[in-house]
Amino acid sequence: MESVAYSYGEELLSDLNISISQGSFYFLTGPSGSGKTTFLKMCYGSLIPTSGKLSVFGKNLPGLSRDEIAFLRRKTGVVHQDCQFLDHLNVADNIALPIMVSARNSLSDNVNLKELLNWVGLSHRSKALPPELSGGERQRAALARAIIMSPDIILADEPTGNIDWEMSQRLIRLLIELNHMGKTVVIATHDLNLIRFTKASVQARVLRISNKSVQLAGSDL
């Protein structure tokens, strides 16, 4: 990001200058309404910066066509706090959705849906509908969907916001495991315990959004 700003009529973020390297682990913190979600949405092309240069995978986002942004999202795994599933499809179909929309007619050899369900601990819930899942199960299903295309970067927006501490730890362990596989992970959260828990296992950096800009936080966390 070079001098990136975003405005919803009123300026929310301004003069953002940051570079996130491949394989790193970042937390994004800040008070509610500070722009954490907006920051992440700009990273996966859901929002286009009002000014500045934002490059993702070497491509300048504001210059991309709608199709190019769609292709970019296939290389970016996104986990939302409210998960966003298609409620009429079962868990397995929801997780396989990115594969299906990417013009591949079937699951590729590289992706084993059963293994993925097993990895996130949802093998027994594969036929359940999203509304039948608990908060923790929904987050793990969202994580599975986010990584099924083997993305280079995983963006998680308050992934533990609606789940208990035990389940949060379980989810963060999965994300740490992905980071160890070389994936870039960026998590927006205001849960300091979660950050401390993660930093015990992985070299995680913390970005703090305040006064419309983002700064690298010190080691006081």
Binding site: V78, L86, L97, S102
Partner: peptide, 16 residues
């Protein structure tokens, strides 16, 4: 609208 949002989130093009 929600279906469209989810499909876009996972990388579906408008044509799809």
């Amino acid at each position: 609208r929600k279906v469209i949002e989810v499909l876009r989130l996972v990388g579906a093009t408008d044509q799809y």
